[in-house]
């Protein structure tokens, strides 16, 4: 038997998949649960093939994939100085593209698609919401302007989002933490 079939393909990083379900009787942190951690391509697929598709989750649920050791929350030391590239999906995109966008995002992260900028990647979150689903890639350092822009451009290219029609914004977690109500945080960068 070829060694290729016996040896799993290692990933550059270990990743943890988290699932959030909005139970209002519990604290936010209690609703965020680790599902599994993996560090090979085969184990990534074993997990992905096993779980419910994002589009089939109830409103209020999230999937998050973060490097092992980083919690999917602003307050984590690896996240708090950074921000996120955020896509607010249109109604049509929610229906047609959510699952493919989410998978493409996962492939970008586990495959280290951002080259040397991949070190600044913390994770990704998909949020299923009645008002419109959201997809975001989180990075760790707001000061890394060049890296943030390269990540944004590469991400937009991988998702196949048309350049002039779709503008993607990057928001600092520090800004998101202090906004009131449903006002969106300002975009520090756009692509």
């Amino acid at each position: 038997i070829s060694p290729e079939l016996l040896i799993k393909h290692p990933l550059q990083n270990s990743w943890t998949l988290w699932f959030y379900k909005n139970d209002k009787q519990k604290q936010w942190e209690e609703n965020q649960r680790e599902i599994s951690t993996f560090d090979t391509v085969e184990d990534f697929w074993a997990l992905y093939n096993h779980i419910e598709a994002a589009s089939r989750l109830q409103s209020g649920c999230d999937y998050s994939l973060f490097k092992a050791g980083i919690k999917p929350m602003w307050e984590d030391t690896k996240n708090k100085s950074g921000g996120r590239w955020l896509i607010n999906l249109t109604r049509q995109q929610c229906i047609n593209d959510l699952d493919s966008y989410w998978l493409e995002t996962l492939l970008c992260l586990v495959g280290e698609a951002f080259d040397e900028q991949s070190d600044d990647i913390c994770g990704t979150v998909v949020q299923i919401r009645t008002k419109g689903d959201k997809l975001a890639v989180w990075t760790g350092d707001l000061r890394n302007n060049d890296g943030i822009l390269k990540i944004g451009m590469k991400y937009k290219e991988r998702l196949g989002l048309p350049n002039k029609v779709c503008v993607m914004g990057y928001q600092a977690h520090a800004d998101s933490m202090v906004i009131c109500g449903s006002m969106p945080a300002q975009n520090r960068f756009t692509v």
């Binding site: 079939l5 085969e42 697929w45 093939n49 495959g111 280290e112 991949s118």
Partner: peptide, 18 residues
Amino acid sequence: GTRIIYERHELLQLRNSP
């Protein structure tokens, strides 16, 4: 140092690997 990078098609090819 070296980085383990997988192209999109490489990851997809392994999706149904035993």
